[in-house]
Design a protein around this nucleic acid. Structure first.
Lengths: 582, 582
DNA sequence: ACACCTATTCTAGAACT
DNA sequence: AGTTCTAGAATAGGTGT
């Protein structure tokens, strides 16, 4: 005991390093010259050997440790990282079983006591950590996997459901677009019908005027066909109204801007700055139609014009009727004079139409219209009839204005409605190209089967849908928005989808009759005086609208305006993006 | 060596059990009486003890094994499940360190050699498997987790994209529905306007008739208001047309079936089985209007009726004009007689309207209408005017028919169009309930933020959207389809959504004016002779349509019919399902 | 007395034969 | 399956607070 302590003490005095007790005792054991026969340095001081394990265990070990078991001693050696030197290295005495036990450690060298500080006890603390960490990790990972599996199945369901919903939504959108197209066509037809009706009325009035007061008018057969030509956008409609045999009245409606050269794109300017266009005719109070006699023709509208700050109607006729069908070449000087005192559009069929539908104008015109029916229809009855028409028009106008009020109030109070408005604002107006119309059905099916390529499908669907000739007729070309879109577009798909509008924008919109270079402007509640660049009915009505400024005051104008307020069918920007990103 | 072998042999002869070598040698060692000083049975044969480990290791072990290490021997004991008997059990000699080493095993008992067969070597075979399985599992799981993480991120992207697309689609659908609603409203307005115009014309004609031939007519002021009342669907519209001050002509349009009591739901019967309804008037050849003089009134329509196999028009007037505003109480006998020889609807405003718009009828009526304007409007001019109207109507009709032809050809040739038709067929017509209109914006936002609750959102969105009062006006009630849907519906949402239609179906459609009990039938290309149960314009027009059978022959009828062909806004069945399944 | 570290003992793992 | 070396694990012991 004292020996071991002394050895430890001697060893410990060499430095301040806190050498573990086992290492100190081992050092002492090996260093002790008295025990060299049992345990000693070997191999030139690189290792140490226990020459007589029996004596070592039973005699030496108890002096340094609390046991006399060689195994315990060896265990400690192992714990401190000592390793046994195998017998073959010892040399020749391989066969000799009871050869000395030899151990080594990188930091346990003779004369190098200071190295002992580097010898660390193998803590089992590391190991449980390792194992526990591993196990914990495994459990963690396992649970995570479980969780992820659930999540994945959830997402699978969700995705499938969403896919179905998307499919249904595409269907719905297609159906709605179809309906919209049908409606728009119907609207166009109806409005065309009404305009036609009014135009005819105007012609009749013109006929009458000439036969009565003028006598210089051309033959009535001429009047039947040449003055106005309602522009038809799609070939089919055009074919119907143009090439129909027996249809002796092809209408040619020219844009009012054709008359004013160089002002084609800015209707706002046209209306506000050009006094020749009597767009500012106010709704004169209705109900006093019976006071409107032919003698008062031109007086009331003129007053109305003046009340609106417009100049007197010396240049009221933006579109003229010419005896020969000169298209677009009409100028103010060529105007056939009739009702020269009548301010609103005079011989312009549009004015007549408006006058028919507008209360005061209708009365003002009615007298002249009925002059041709002296024998067949009693004047009183005709007056009655027109009175009724006027009343109904009046009522309709009132209803329309009332509806309009209601509408806006709905928009304000109904969150859904307002939300819709907001949504609509966000929609981008990107017309598609007409490619690959024939692929839609396959793609619709592909939505179900194909899992990954939804983008292509949707795009195709979009394109195809837009490519529907029915719909292409109704497309509007809001050039400014398209330009903005083009700037922001960074993917090829979007650019390709915008191909058509960009083309139509680049070109002077001269080649196609159905393209309207104007961009949509909401002239909703402004009382019909500022149609501006607003695209009206995308097809038939726009030119007519411009052509017949007085329509603004008639219920038909309300119809047209309202129809134009229904935004044209154009794909959602988000839709495009979403489709292109899938 | 021989001793050990012999011991093993002796021990092994006791039974056929394949006792492992170590156990046999151990048995021999312990049993051998010659080595009892070194190793022997102890504790009454329950255990064995090594009394002198030094001698045992160096002298006995080599005789039985290939080594002389006690540790190796002990290792074997441990492998076979032997356990050391701790010192305290040995008794008192605790302090004596070099006490005997004592081991025990349940199946290693003195005199019980046969039990040795139960002693099994502890195979580490389980352990490597365990560890390897564990490691493999861990690696597997780890890779799986990696894979799943990638998949999840992929799915996340996909889902986000889909969500965006979905959102855009919902927006699009909402916008389209909005547009559709606007269009429908506009259509209703226009048609109402036209019908109003026609009605007034009729009234004028009636007035004239009475003042001329009858003299028994009531005051003209009465005629201004009482006969027809256009049903307005939403409260707002109703308020406008009903409560508007100064609007002296509230129109009341009653279903034609009101006249025929008990036949309200079956329009097919009405039209096909009731000869009183001259719905089968054919389009008489147009263009010969100039030949139509008042003398021919009633002749041509009558012929037309007869050509269609209908009875002569003795009971032609299904709806009558009464001097007092008796709503819905009119019966055939109360018909005010005028133009008694005129078959088509005679004093019925609808008939007059139709006659105005229909070529032949218009001519037939025109004479009488104009009789009240003898002084103010010359008869010739009035005739001219009406002639123009007729011509334009004729042209419009031709155009419409032409368009129709074009339309169907498009449907046939355009795969998209046909596909759309097919899609539309698949759409279920399930009107929504009007709940929670105000939640849409929040839900639209929630689509972005909330990740999990898409189902609720979509449902809400759907319901809310459907709940838009604007849209509810346009809803149709195809009862048969609804019934089918109700049978197939198994989820609450669908059922709830179908609540309203089912209600309107169940009830006799008496409570609400805007509900039409008819189910949609496509009488598209059949030439206007079989309107059947087809719902026309969902709102205003249907009743009017029924009320004015002659409208079927006018361009307005075409408008109405075409408007009715635009399917009403109703959610897609797939949409509903998808939304409920999310 | 408790916490922390070390030491001892028994058992097990692993590699090699 | 045996042998050897090493490690794990539990417990005991020691030290400092």
């Amino acid at each position: 005991m004292k020996k071991a302590e002394a050895a430890v003490a001697v060893a410990g005095c060499g430095g301040g390093a806190p050498v573990p007790g086992f290492l100190a005792k081992l050092w002492a054991l090996v260093e002790d010259p008295g025990s060299d026969a049992v345990i000693c340095w070997s191999r030139n001081g690189q290792t140490f050997s226990i020459l007589d394990e029996q004596r070592f265990a039973k005699e030496l070990l108890p002096k340094y440790f609390k046991h006399n078991n060689l195994s315990s001693f060896i265990r400690q050696l192992n714990i401190y990282g000592f390793r046994k030197v195998i017998a073959l290295e010892n040399g020749m005495m391989t066969s000799v079983k009871n050869l000395a036990i030899e151990f080594q450690h990188p930091f346990f060298k003779q004369e190098k006591f200071s190295l002992l500080a580097n010898i660390k006890r193998k803590v089992s603390a590391v190991r449980p950590e390792d194992l526990k960490v591993c196990q914990e990790d495994l459990h963690k990972v396992l649970s995570e996997v479980q969780e992820m599996r659930e999540q994945q199945s959830n997402m699978d369901l969700k995705l499938a459901s969403m896919k179905r919903e998307n499919q249904a939504l595409w269907k719905e959108v297609a159906s709605l677009r179809q309906k919209h197209s049908q409606q728009q066509q119907l609207l166009s037809k109806i409005l065309e019908f009404i305009l036609n009706l009014m135009r005819r009325n105007c012609i009749v009035g013109l006929k009458r005027k000439r036969s009565l007061s003028d006598g210089s008018g051309a033959s009535p057969s001429k009047y039947g066909r040449q003055y106005l030509r309602i522009p038809v956008e799609d070939c089919e409609t055009a074919a119907i109204s143009e090439h129909k045999p027996g249809c002796e009245d092809g209408l040619v409606i020219r844009d009012i801007t054709d008359v004013h050269e160089g002002e084609e794109d800015d209707d706002d300017d046209n209306q506000k700055d050009c006094p020749e266009k009597p767009l500012a005719l106010a709704h004169v109070s209705s109900g006093n139609w019976d006071a409107q006699l032919p003698a008062r023709e031109g007086i009331l509208p003129c007053e109305a014009l003046q009340t609106l700050g417009l100049e007197p109607p010396e240049v009221i006729c933006p579109v003229q009727l010419a005896d020969s069908p000169v298209e677009g070449g009409g100028e103010e000087s060529n105007a056939v004079e009739l009702h020269s005192a009548e301010p609103p559009a005079t011989e312009d069929p549009a004015a007549v139409i408006a006058s028919i539908l507008d209360e005061n104008q209708a009365v003002a015109q009615s007298g002249s219209v009925l002059e041709r029916f002296p024998t067949f229809f009693p004047r009183e009855e005709m007056q009655d009839f027109l009175n009724c028409i006027d009343a109904s028009l009046e009522e309709l106008q009132a209803m329309l204005s009332g509806k309009k009020l209601n509408y806006s109030s709905e928009m304000l109070t109904d969150p859904f409605g307002s939300e819709l408005t907001v949504l609509d604002e966000n929609l981008t107006d990107v017309p598609p190209n007409l490619d690959s119309v024939e692929h839609l059905p396959e793609n619709t099916d592909a939505v179900e089967t194909d899992e990954q390529e939804t983008s292509g499908k949707n795009d195709m669907q979009l394109i195809q849908y837009r490519g529907n000739p029915l719909l292409s007729l109704l497309e509007d070309v809001p050039s400014s928005e398209v330009v903005c879109k083009m700037e922001n577009a960074d993917d090829v798909l979007l650019a390709s989808l915008e191909d058509r509008p960009s083309l139509s924008l680049a070109s002077g919109s001269e080649e196609t009759v159905q393209q309207f270079p104007d961009s949509a402007v909401q002239a909703d509640d402004s009382p019909g005086l500022e149609p501006q660049d607003q695209p009206l009915l995308p097809e038939d009505v726009s030119g007519e609208y411009k052509l017949f400024p007085l329509l603004l005051l008639s219920p038909v104008a309300n119809f047209i305006e309202e129809a134009s307020e229904i935004k044209p069918l154009e794909p959602d920007k988000d839709l495009l993006e979403a489709a292109s990103q899938l």
